[in-house]
Design a binder for these strands. Structure first.
Lengths: 194, 194
DNA sequence: CGATTCTTTGAAAACAGTCAATCTGTGTGG
DNA sequence: CCACACAGATTGACTGTTTTCAAAGAATCG
């Protein structure tokens, strides 16, 4: 199945759109394949697109002064990804996006997104709904990070993202949660034994 | 000065609005005073308003199963506050909002907000811009929480919110950062001595 | 002033990080 | 198709940090 057809299915479950509207959305999109380990956004580039992951798995992360990776998000199929700060301010991104698996994505430039949003209010409302959901997810993640132990964080991650945790290496989950791989390894053994 | 006049000043620095538009915004607003320690939103209530803090200081927090408070946000003058999850879903809030200082706020119901947004697109754009800013702030806070030590977190908080840190008790900053009051007390002594 | 809230301190225990080594599974090139 | 390299996971010993519990000192408010 073509990439856009998969996206169409996804979209039609969420918004009612006419064929003409879907054509407009399609005509402004671009397809791209990303190889495993390939960069999609490099540090210092501007994140000027909305990107929908059709297949595969991407991650958004940052490298600190000591060279440590800190993973902000994973984006498997049917998720959107961008560095929202760079997207909005137009400033170079401090973050990196690359592919953990061979991936295929659909891309809209910021300009095209704005144009399509203007033409199709229902699509704009949908996009804004997604944004609110990400906001709430961040809210919950912050609550989790200030109120939970490492073990609870891991359990919570597994429960919230069952589709992700067994596709990414443990040390990346550790990075996402803000603990070392060794700690996560021990914490996890500890409670799988119980 | 009247509450709304203060808000008008704030708003006019950010958006160009006609007098008629400002009148509409004013006519849909309600004023409220909140005493120190008074609840503005109780757990289980629906957060169905947009609230602008004109004077004073509010906080948004949650109490976990063990009875510990976890502070999500502080909101001093010129900040907006609500539980966005409850606001959007219409579900009862798991969070609490109360006043740390005697406060005065301006309130719009969700319905009125939507109505005013519909009438004044520039005001909607302004509101959405604010929302994006909160999102980016959350993003940065998450990065901070997974990549920094307790000391760095505190320094960062002081630097990011110089207007807040000296108005709230240390144990609330500790709660916000996700460390115990004792740890924050020690950490802070440690680096003020250096 | 007395009561309450807030901050600090000490000592012990729990927890997480670091460093180094080993073990496992996967996949690629010869 | 095998061997070897490589990425990932685990473990141990040690160190450092944070929590916990208990108590006391400081500041603030009515």
């Amino acid at each position: 199945m073509q990439l856009f057809e998969i996206f169409r299915k996804y979209l039609q479950e969420k918004v009612e759109l006419t064929d003409a509207q879907l054509d407009l959305i399609r005509s402004t999109s671009k397809e791209r394949k990303i190889a495993k380990r390939e960069f999609y956004l490099r540090e210092g580039e501007i994140s000027g697109h909305n990107t929908f992951v059709v297949k595969g798995l991407l991650r958004l992360y940052r490298i600190d002064e000591d060279g440590n990776e800190h993973i902000m998000r994973f984006a498997p199929e049917n998720w959107w990804i961008s560095d929202r700060e760079s997207y909005n301010t137009g400033e170079p991104s401090k973050f990196i996006i690359d592919a953990l698996e061979k991936s295929e994505v659909l891309i809209w430039t910021k300009e095209d997104s704005e144009f399509v949003y203007g033409e199709i209010p229902a699509f704009r409302a949908f996009g804004e709904g997604l944004f609110v959901e990400s906001f709430i997810a961040y809210h919950n993640r912050i609550y989790n990070s200030i109120s939970s132990t490492a073990e609870e964080k891991y359990k919570n991650f597994v429960k919230t993202y069952p589709d992700i945790f067994n596709r990414v290496p443990l040390h990346m989950v550790a990075s996402y949660l803000g603990v070392t791989r060794e700690t996560l390894s021990r914490v996890r053994r500890h409670f799988t034994l119980k």
